[in-house]
Design a protein around this nucleic acid. Sequence first.
RNA 1: GGCCCCAUCGUCUAGCGGUCUAGGACACCACCCUUUCAAGGUGGAUACGCGGGUUCGAGUCCCGCUGGGGUCACCA
Length: 500
Amino acid sequence: MAESPIRTRFAPSPTGSLHIGGLRTALFNWMFARKHGGQFILRIEDTDQKRFDPDALRTLMEAMRWAGLDWDEGPEVGGPCGPYVQSERLAHYQRWARWLVEQGHAYPCFCTPERLEQVNQAKAARKEPPGYDRLCRSISPVEAQARVDAGEKYVVRFKAPLEGQTIVQDVIRGETAFDNHTIQDAVLLKSDGFPTYHLAVVVDDHLMHISHVMRAVEWYPSYPLHVLIWRAFGWDMPIFAHLPVILNPNGKGKMSKRNPPRDKFGNVIPVMVHHYMENGYLPQAMVNFLAQIGWNFGDDREVFTIQEAIERFTLEAINPANSALPADKLDWLNATYIRNLTTPELAAALRPYLERAGLVVDEERLLKLAPVVQTRLKKNLTEVVELAGFIFRPYEDFQPAPAEQIIQKKMDAAAAIRTLEESMTIVQSIDDFSTATLLAAHEALAQRLELTNGQVFGVLRVALSAQTISTPTFETMELLGRAETLRRLALALDVVRAAA
RNA sequence: GGCCCCAUCGUCUAGCGGUCUAGGACACCACCCUUUCAAGGUGGAUACGCGGGUUCGAGUCCCGCUGGGGUCACCA
């Protein structure tokens, strides 16, 4: 086993965008393959025609690539075990389902959905657990074949053992024994000729030479069934690791896009990776974050590169317990990564969010703005709009703040008026219209006026931004330019005078 | 409900019988710095779910209870 190449796979069902938990599963598989110099395969499990979403595959691959998870084999890149889309592999499943029937490990079932429904209802009435009553299991192979040949509709069911136990092995959970009588005669091949997950996963993991399977624990209850199917085929099994579930931030139930969790302010906490992409989260932060759910770097380190994580990653270190999504920690990590960006990187990252808000952004001011907002983005890139969007909004649209916001604490209207007048004089006459020079001149002004820096700068900041929370005063002046600064100071002066 | 998994601060976690008066991080609180807001600095509060064992010794091993989660489709 140690000699065979490490091959892992991520096998999502393309029913929508990628779920954050799915990305974590993909990440672990990818890290494991990269660590061991093996291959990471992307396989698309689209065997449910009813839930087919034509956009999903594209969206899903986009999210994977955004996160930096490249695949060695799979859609768009091909590979020796293709095709990698299950709906294009029907012949394999049908062939192996037939083989199982021939070997006596499976049987055709002619029961209609209606009958299945009746069986379950009857069982429910008797307070028995639901499940197929194995009616067709007793049909003789000859008769069954005849009915199949006659064109009767059927599914292929697995012939699960009626007694005994099946012991399963899991790297992070050890052994678990399941009583065989609790295992259903699961459908392997549907009446439309498509396989169910149970058949497809075993056939494909074998045909694609997967060495290690990391999948969500949601699969654990059907794991013994899979083990039985592997044994029926007589194939060597991969090593399995069932990953803990990522629960809602409040720990109640798993993350669901139908019923998304909310933070303490009532804001929706995204479940799909695309929402994080749109909401200004950096992929490096997301990957760092996800790597810490159910696994940890060690050395009390919280911030690390994916390369560093790969070096240390082991299956055995995965924590078996489910965990609530620590959404606050993602915000913090994202802000940490934002702070570590270079100015050009940050400017480039910011631009789409500003533009999406309808702002016309010139590169020169964007490059000046980037370092100013860098430490002020607490969660994500979208916050730049609220904090500094006013810089790029058309000047003619500017509406000054009300007088009570312009006038600072422990200060009267007269003082605010003085401040604005004096500042206008400075702004008009100063040679070097830059942050540092403006700051020095206004510090002197505060002294002259016998006001604090906070009072003077505050009046001006609100006058310029019409916001109580904004970029620092003199950076704002530089960003707006002398003429616009002067115009806004005058506007504020009018407002305060009118109110006085 | 049946079956299965899990259980350390509010949350993510370290801990794999003695070094635990339980460590880190986020969040929270206080103070410092300060030009609003941030960032940064310092400090603080907060956890081994309960009950039995095993052992000289248990957060660490075993059992039970409780709690939480997952799963019971011709969906994955």
